[in-house]
């Protein structure tokens, strides 16, 4: 009797899981619907956690880990990079121009608008991409994409934008939608030898333990990048993290700043609209 009860519960859970998966993969939704559903999913999962708290990742949903993290944040491990980033940002190129010349508002307090769809270049552009375009346009060599100087500059630019709500314009044109859909598909598609999607861990199982670690909710992920990770012992960009995630499920990572990751960042960021930028962050 007990057995059949367990079985029934398991079956019900399985069915719910399948339906949930199917619903989130359904095509007939608009980006606005997706955003609404995405938020509501997490609101239901973590009752009482306000939207902005999701910018703190695991620490927004787990009090015990939050205390350790708050202690770390008193002497943030990203401080040295932040200072370096500010210095780099303000150092003129050989031609006398600075990064400020390539951005609206001189590059201060604008992180929340990235990535964005560029009508002129018919593609999604990330903050790191525009930083490097700024360099090459001014006769400087492009920086490596995943860590080092680019992460430091990006960290400084995020820092000047702290407190500004992420504001990715809703994709409406056919090309914007197609970039968005590519990102959304990447998020929900199973991949790698371990056959896991981003959503399997960071949506379906957010808040659960994977061995001794708590899985972070995807809502709010982008707010604190670039990030200093204890595991890396250094700063890294969003695309460095994407590559790591893909490798962990034993999939071949895409190159940093590939269209695939740019599309993913576009979707991922749109889903976090309204959450305040709080980068750079520190994580395990």
């Amino acid at each position: 009797m007990k057995v059949s009860k367990i079985k029934k519960t398991l079956l019900a859970l399985t069915a719910a899981g399948v339906l949930g998966g199917a619903a989130s993969n359904a095509v007939a939704t608009t980006p606005e619907d997706d955003l609404q559903n995405f938020r509501e999913y997490f609101y239901k999962k973590f009752p009482g956690v306000p939207l902005n708290e999701y910018g703190n990742g695991v620490y927004g949903i787990d009090q015990a880990s939050r205390q350790t993290w708050e202690a770390i944040e008193e002497f943030p491990p990203y401080e040295i990079d932040l200072e370096k980033g500010e210095e780099l940002f303000n150092t003129p190129f050989a031609n006398g121009k600075t990064y400020a010349s390539c951005f609206k508002n001189g590059g201060i307090g604008i992180r929340q608008n990235f990535p964005f769809y560029s009508k002129e270049h018919k593609q999604v552009k990330t903050l790191e991409q525009v930083i490097n375009e700024c360099r090459t346009r001014n006769g400087e060599k492009a920086l490596g994409w995943k860590k080092g100087d680019i992460a430091a500059i990006s960290a400084y630019m995020a820092y000047t934008s702290r407190g500004k709500a992420i504001h990715i314009k809703t994709p409406t044109t056919a090309d914007e939608i197609s970039w968005y859909e590519r990102g959304r598909k990447h998020f929900y598609a199973k991949r790698g030898q371990l056959n896991m999607s981003c959503a399997n861990c960071h949506q379906d199982n957010a808040g659960n333990y994977i061995r001794a670690d708590i899985l972070s909710p995807a809502l709010g992920h982008v707010s604190h990048f670039p990030v200093y990770r204890a595991k890396w012992g250094s700063m890294g960009t969003m695309h460095r993290r994407y590559g790591g995630c893909n490798k962990q499920v034993r999939a071949l990572p895409f190159p940093a700043q590939s269209d695939e990751y740019k599309a993913l960042e576009y979707f991922h960021s749109y889903m976090s609209n309204g959450i305040e930028v709080n980068g750079p962050g520190s994580r395990k």
Binding site: T14, G17, V18, G21, Q193, L194, N195, M196, C201, D204
Partner: peptide, 14 residues
């Protein structure tokens, strides 16, 4: 269950 997070140990030769 198609959306199961459990890796397909045999099918993917893990």
């Amino acid at each position: 269950s198609p959306n199961s997070i459990m890796p397909p140990f045999g099918r993917h030769k893990i």
